[in-house]
Amino acid sequence: MTAWILGGALVAAAAVLPLVTASYLVSFTIQLFLFVVLAYSWNVISGYTGYTSFGHTSFFGIGAYGATLMMLHWKLPWLLACAGGGLLAVAVALPLGVVMLRLRGSFFAIGMFGLARVFEAVAFGWADLTRGGTGLYLPPAYDLRPLYYALGVLALGMVLLTWRLDNSRFGLQLLAIREDEDGAEALGIKTTRLKVRAFVLSAVGPGVSGGFYAVYLSFIDPPTAFSPATELTTIAMVLFGGMGTVLGPLVGAAVLSVLYEGLWARFPQVYLGAGGVIIAAVVLLMPRGVMAVAMRRGWLPHGRGTLRRLAARPAAPAEA
């Protein structure tokens, strides 16, 4: 119950924020929302399904370019164009997922990393469409509030979706794939179909928010669209919070956003390396993230909601 009140208060605070305050905080929160979306999306495929992707900026960049081109050539309104960018990312993710998810572990990670580099190279090389390294310009957005609410709704959607996922049969099946894919297959879980579904699901958020990011910057070029720094930050956030947890990505995104903002202001030379230091520290010191530490210390209930409820259910009578 407290969790619901706390969550409601957080959402209400976020909803009134742009009505009462200056543009700096709004701008900061837009970037926070952006990373919440990216972190939760990455969490679906890498946290729950166990397929660590080093190339999810592919979908971010595809969404960014898709939405920008739709706005420039088809004169679509930005919201519709961003949805279109998301659809494009899904359309690319589906065949890619079928191929890439045959790779396991490190090979999937490296394959995805290479893929992002290829998309970046194509964005550079296909100059007729993307104007290569010059980039594409959009009319600047003077009022950031519509963008703020659109990204906020998307971020909230990702949190709720993950909460549903964590409590669903689908989510548990994904966890089974993560823990032992061959075992899951042997138990009758249709692993390929579910993995592809998770992969496509994890491309939606980056695809749509890529468009939002292009609107926010009113500019897109290949290094921005397929930036390894975006990838790194997302991964650091989810690892820090805890992979495959409902609240971990939110905690990670919030803590690291504030940290990055502080570092950016005081020590701009080192802030890019901070993501690397955080990942190294998490891998070495708390590989299951802050959420696992919080559970161990007793600040949070142990285990998953579904499993807790299953365990609390009165046992079935031994003899029928």
């Binding site: 660590t52 080093f54 572990g105 490190s106 990670a109 490296i110 390894p228 790194l232 991964i235 690892l239 890019l272 390396g273 993501g275 690397g276 230091v277 955080i278 990942i279 190294a280 891998v283 070495l284």
Partner: peptide, 9 residues
């Protein structure tokens, strides 16, 4: 892999 990735960045 994550550790060497972080070392790389």
């Amino acid at each position: 892999l994550l550790l060497t990735y972080s070392v790389s960045t």
